[in-house]
Amino acid sequence: MIRQDFGDQLVELEQELLRMGALVEDQLRAAVRSLTERNSQAAREVIDDDDRVDAMEMDIERRCLTLLALQQPLARDLRIVSTALKIITDLERMADHATDIARVTLVLENQVFVKPLVDIPEMARLASSMVRLALNAYVHRSTDEAATMIRLDDDVDHLYSAVFRDLIEVMREHPQAVDQGTHLLFVANYIERVADHATNIGEWVIFMVTGERKEVEY
């Protein structure tokens, strides 16, 4: 009976994690869309949603601590719960980055972009799909899925380098756009950080399944 109860609580924990992940994914997409469309209202909603993410983080943290205290899980069960604790920290940081991007939207709301945003939305699309894949890997307890997801970080890094070069070029050609270009550089950096956090989650999933903590080479 006790094991059954523990199993049920693990399932609930996973569902909450998936909900939190879905919210963070939405936030990231919405933040970048608010930027491309220069939609301040949408940006403010992203910023407001950060409180929901924080509340979910605290709720999941409480669930994990309760499971640790009352069920005292061992071995794989212990790794599952401790991995959940690590994942929520990464998700919360990602949400902070989405908020940072939304704040850039508010700064640039009345500006015309010197060059249309192409690579930044693509980076965001990749990074948010990494978030989803990372959480799927957690739920499926799949090292293969985690490793496949981690490889996408390379694509994000390449795009980041391209964005960086482009923006430097734009700022050289249009000195009046240095302010805008710097903000957009920050945005690209925030998205790159989101992908790094997704990579962390993938590495924790591999630890959860194998019991070995190591950085994945990719």
């Binding site: 523990f6 061992l74 071995a75 069960d77 194998t210």
Partner: peptide, 17 residues
């Protein structure tokens, strides 16, 4: 042993399965 045992039977015993 208690965080990452190497044998499946140990894992099952420690997790009540």
């Amino acid at each position: 042993i208690f965080t990452a045992p190497s044998d499946r039977r140990t894992e099952e015993y420690l997790t009540g399965r």
